[in-house]
């Protein structure tokens, strides 16, 4: 498991992290799993349900972890997923237990 390294930036009390929300266009998905594997924050999981083409699309398992990095969108060969920034504001650094997962 990757461990996020959130160091406290010099001069700022609390780090500001973008928050993202993921939109999955399920019917475009071909279930390759790239987004799930390469999400830096392990936000996505493979769902059990089928889309109209018979593939398993991903679902958002840990929405609170998404930082709107956009890598799922870039890494998706089928243009089926993207993230949008919903709110950017101060956020408490994640407690140590949840970071280790």
């Amino acid at each position: 498991m990757r461990i996020r390294n959130r160091e406290k930036p010099f001069g700022i009390e609390k780090p500001v992290t973008a928050r993202g929300q993921i939109v999955i266009i399920e019917d475009r998905c071909k279930g390759c799993g790239f987004c799930i594997e390469y999400c830096p924050n392990d936000v996505l999981r493979l769902s059990d349900k089928y889309n109209s083409k018979g593939y398993h699309p991903p679902y958002v398992a840990h929405e609170e972890e998404c930082v709107d990095c956009g890598f799922c969108q870039m890494n998706c060969p089928d243009f089926a997923i993207f993230s949008v920034e919903v709110e950017s504001g101060e956020r408490e650094p994640a407690p140590a237990e949840s970071v280790k997962r």
Binding site: M74, N75, P77, D78, F79
Partner: peptide, 22 residues
């Protein structure tokens, strides 16, 4: 992209979509 043509013809797990995405 020409969304009226998506889904494209490439197989699941193919990297060409990634190249197009990039």
């Amino acid at each position: 992209l020409r969304m009226d043509r998506i889904p494209h013809i490439w197989c699941p797990g193919c990297g060409i979509g990634n190249a197009v995405s990039a």
